[in-house]
């Protein structure tokens, strides 16, 4: 990320010096403003779901759900952290139910838990699951197509679902595979 960030910053700054130097600072401020509005959106999502999640946790519901999902998560993410497995379980449950906004806070908490115990494998795997789009119903796109008077707005549902399924599967398999290679290489060199 550091390399990409530095390269993009320097390259665009130089290009803008020639094209439109006055656009440079507004672009940065625009980005910051976008971060501020995103913060507000995220804060709203978080307060709702973290508030509810805390109520659920205090009444022992989270524990009960997670207990069912946990064995699977322990194995899948190779974690020993009960809390991490619980958050990951909630993240996946929310994603499958199509509650993308609710899934994010749990996902980030699980990432921190996995990272804290030095479990890079689980952390990376959870990121891959979330970054390859686990959304099941593309509601935004369907709404947009309807607004452009499409004959069948939900047409894209099947291809999008198939694509998502194949690509998420491929990414997970690829990660398992490359992780294994990296491990055996580092073992050989050490």
């Amino acid at each position: 990320m550091n390399a990409i960030f530095t390269a993009v910053f320097i390259a665009s700054a130089i290009l803008l010096c020639f094209a439109d130097p006055n656009a440079f600072l507004p672009a940065l401020l625009d980005g910051a403003e976008q971060a501020a509005t995103t913060f507000l959106t995220l804060f709203c999502i978080y307060t709702v779901w973290m508030g509810l999640s805390r109520v659920a946790a205090d009444s022992g519901i989270n524990g009960a759900i997670a207990k069912k999902m946990q064995p699977l998560c322990f194995k899948f993410f190779r974690t020993k952290s009960a809390l991490g497995a619980q958050y990951a379980a909630m993240n996946i449950t929310c994603n499958v139910l199509g509650l993308g906004g609710a899934a994010t806070p749990f996902g980030i908490k699980a990432m921190k838990q996995f990272d804290g115990e030095g479990n890079l494998f689980g952390r990376n795997l959870l990121f891959i699951l979330n970054a390859t789009s686990v959304q099941i119903i593309p509601s935004t796109v369907i709404a947009l197509r309807a607004s452009f008077s499409s004959a069948s707005p939900a047409d894209v549902f099947a291809p999008a679902l198939i694509t998502t399924a194949i690509c998420t599967g491929t990414a997970v398999a690829l990660y398992f595979f490359t992780d294994k290679i990296c491990r055996s290489l580092s073992r050989r060199s050490s």
């Binding site: 990409i4 993009v8 665009s12 803008l16 440079f24 672009a27 980005g31």
Partner: peptide, 9 residues
């Protein structure tokens, strides 16, 4: 900020 620069440059 990086994304904005990427787009407008």
């Amino acid at each position: 900020m990086m994304c904005k620069l990427f787009e407008i440059s």
